[in-house]
């Protein structure tokens, strides 16, 4: 495993574009901390975002993982081009001739995907701890370490998404096309959902029907669903909602086992299909 990782990281790190993207990704992740410095002024009245409970434990786990996941596209580009380059340079063929088996090749790529997801998770964990201890109103250990399942969900979300990217890279062989395909896939999921829910079943916005059940099983949507948007959970937003007399928004923000397992099944499918494609293909 060490050998394969050292091979793959040499390939990535020596490439200037990948190196820049990797660094940019971690810099952007750190920029979440900058939210702390945002201030609004209403005349003499000043609101500092950091003091509004956005960095309160355990809410911070939810907020930070959700925002951090938005930056994953940077690593997705690195992963897709890493795979597509192997085709365009002809090095996939050469690696195999030099004595890497197809299994080892796929395995090493998924090791990279796994380490990217793991590194991101650790980074977000440490950053959230620091931010939390600086700004949270509660710092009792029992509160700090509640709701850590958001971190697990974050890890799985990234791992699944990167596996999907890798799979597309292997399938399509060209990075630009693979990224285009990724976008296309996302749009296709939404269109199918829309057609099933509103056209075929003639449903409406208020009532759930088969369309809503179905879309939970689509790969992109299931990854998205792993952690729900945290904004409406934020106290300040709730207060405003109450003040405006809107109906209390009862929403389940938790991470559910069923959703995790859907994503894990997809990840498994992506890994196995990638191996199958590579095995069947004449290079």
């Amino acid at each position: 495993m060490k050998r394969l990782l050292s091979i793959e990281f040499q390939k990535i790190w020596k490439n200037k574009a990948s190196r820049v993207l990797l660094l940019a990704y971690f810099v952007l992740l750190s920029s979440i901390a900058l939210v702390a410095s945002i201030k609004f002024s209403f005349g003499t009245f000043e609101i500092r975002i950091a003091d509004q409970g956005i960095f309160n434990f355990p809410y911070i786990w939810h907020f930070n993982t959700f925002v951090a996941a938005l930056f994953k596209i940077f690593l997705a580009v690195v992963i897709v081009s890493m795979m597509a380059n192997e085709y365009t340079y002809g090095t996939l063929k050469q690696n195999l001739i030099d004595g890497l088996s197809k299994k080892e090749f796929i395995y090493s790529k998924f090791l990279v995907v796994g380490s990217f997801a793991l590194a991101s998770t650790l980074f977000v964990f440490i950053m959230s701890l620091i931010l939390g201890y600086s700004f949270s109103s509660y710092t009792e250990l029992s509160i700090v370490f509640t709701d850590l399942e958001y971190l697990l969900a974050f890890f799985i979300k990234l791992f699944a998404f990167f596996s999907f990217c890798l799979f597309l890279g292997i399938l399509v062989k060209r990075s630009a096309f693979a990224l285009g395909f990724l976008t296309l896939w996302f749009i296709a999921e939404q269109i199918i959902y829309w057609i099933v829910k509103f056209v075929i079943l003639s449903g409406d916005d208020k009532h759930k029907n088969f369309g809503d059940t179905m879309i939970k099983y689509f790969p992109m949507e299931s990854m998205w669903n792993l952690s729900k948007e945290p904004v409406t959970r934020f106290n300040a937003v709730k207060t405003i909602e109450n003040a405006m007399g809107g109906a209390q928004n009862i929403k389940d923000y938790g991470v559910h086992f069923s959703e995790v397992s859907i994503v894990l099944v997809w990840t498994f499918i992506f890994i196995l299909t990638s191996y199958y494609i590579l095995k069947k293909r004449d290079l």
Binding site: K11, K14, K16, N85, Y89, G90, T91
Partner: peptide, 9 residues
């Protein structure tokens, strides 16, 4: 085989 395959960067 055929042409030299290396990482150009």
């Amino acid at each position: 085989i055929e042409r030299p395959n290396f990482y150009p960067y």
